[in-house]
Structures are given as structure tokens and as C-alpha cells.
């Protein structure tokens, strides 16, 4: 554990909490892609199956359980509790276009051809593209509330900090996880355009912003 990794995990937690509290307080999930949130719940479910098979640390176990619980709570709020406010007409990204290649790739490129490893690889690949329905939705509607932008900012920051963590780990422990690093870099690239707009528009006080 290093400071970049810890800061990355904390930004991830902050992002998830921002989204959950936004929905809870406004009693509305308008502008939020339920599809992205289902994909994230699927990411955590397939990655954290090792909760049942191996113990790494108390921190690791607690964070996994928290991420799982929060992601399912978010999905519950969107599709059950506040489903009247769910903007399904604009959440039209075809998820199968992500799932089919991701499933295919996880069978082709993995550390060992076992169900657990294939599911772990699937979760890593899926996480790198899971935000696409949300970004697609913002592009379609032309704007997002600033709170949604803060959510995306912290999610992007989490990815960027993980890259710094990998650079650090490579130099200090010789650690290099090819699958995680390659898909992590791909994932972070998706946020670059957003980061630029966030800094130039949201932080300079316009509140709302639109993606080109």
C-alpha cells in the first residue's frame, strides 16, 4: 500500500458516495446512466469473488464489501426506488457492444484459464469501458448537472492515481500487472477529454457543461 493507491481508493469511494448521495438527496436519478451503474455492479461482483477464497487484509475485505454494497444500493435507487425519474429514453447505449468484446477478450487474454481468473480479467476489461453509457448519455442530452461532473471527476482521478501507484510499485517492488495496467491506461484516456472540459468549464463557474 502506498499513498497513491490509498488516495486512488479514496477518490473511488468519494465518487460512488457523491452519486449515491446526489440521488438520495434529490430523490431523483435524472441524468444518471443506470446502464453504467449496472455494469459497475457487475464489475465488482465478478472481481470480488475472491472474498470467498482468499484473505488479503482487513482493509481489502472491508473496501470490497463497501464497494459491492454501495454499487448495489445505487442500482436499487435507480431502478426501484426512484425509477420514475430514471431517464431511460436517453440511456440508450447498446451494452452488448461492450459486453461481447469484453467477454471474448477475457477468454483470450488472461493469466490462467480458470473461471476465477477469466471473471477477474472480465471485470478489469469491463471496468475500463463501463462509463461509456454515462458519457454517451451526456453527449446525447448535451449537458450534465455539475454534481454528475464531480462524480466523473473523482472516478477519473481514481484511475489516474492508480497509474501513479503502478509506476511507484514498478520502481519500488518490480510489480507490473500487464492486464490491469493496459486496461487502466485505456480507461484513463476516456476521461481525458472530460477532465479538460471539467477544468475549463465546471471549475470556472459555469456549473453545467456539455460534451462536444
Amino acid at each position: 500500500m502506498n499513498i497513491f493507491r490509498l488516495a486512488g481508493d479514496m477518490s473511488h469511494l468519494v465518487a460512488i458516495l457523491i452519486l449515491l448521495l446526489k440521488i438520495w438527496r434529490s430523490r431523483s436519478c435524472a441524468g444518471i446512466s443506470g446502464k453504467s451503474q449496472v455494469l459497475f455492479a457487475l464489475v465488482f461482483t465478478t472481481r470480488y469473488l475472491d472474498l470467498f477464497t482468499s484473505f488479503i487484509s482487513a482493509y481489502n475485505t472491508v473496501m470490497k464489501v463497501v464497494f459491492l454494497a454501495l454499487s448495489y444500493a445505487t442500482v436499487y435507487l435507480i431502478y426501484m426506488r426512484f425509477r420514475n425519474s430514471y431517464d431511460s429514453e436517453n440511456d440508450t447505449f447498446r451494452v452488448e457492444f461492450l459486453l461481447v468484446p469484453v467477454i471474448g477478450l477475457s477468454f483470450l487474454e488472461n493469466y490462467s484459464f480458470t473461471p476465477m481468473e477469466i471473471l477477474w480479467t472480465f471485470s478489469i476489461f469491463l471496468e475500463s469501458v463501463a462509463i461509456m453509457p454515462q458519457l454517451f448519455m451526456i453527449t446525447k442530452t448535451g449537458e450534465a448537472e455539475s454534481i454528475t461532473n464531480h462524480y466523473l471527476f473523482f472516478l477519473g482521478l481514481y484511475r489516474a492515481l492508480y497509474i501513479v501507484n503502478w509506476v511507484w510499485r514498478y520502481h519500488t517492488e518490480g510489480f507490473f500487472d500487464q492486464i490491469a495496467v493496459v486496461s487502466g491506461v485505456v480507461q484513463t484516456i476516456f476521461y481525458c477529454d472530460f477532465f479538460y472540459l471539467y477544468v475549463t468549464r465546471v471549475l470556472r463557474g459555469r456549473g453545467k457543461m456539455s460534451l462536444p
Binding site: R5, D9, H12, D50, S54, I56, S57, N60, M63, K64, F67, Y111, S112, E117, W120, Y162, F175, D177, I179, A180
Partner: peptide, 10 residues
């Protein structure tokens, strides 16, 4: 030893 090595990250 690929397996196990990456499992400490979330």
C-alpha cells in the same frame, strides 16, 4: 506467479 499478485488491488 501471476495469480495472486494482482489480488491486493481493488
Amino acid at each position: 506467479d501471476a495469480e495472486g499478485k494482482h489480488k491486493d488491488e481493488l
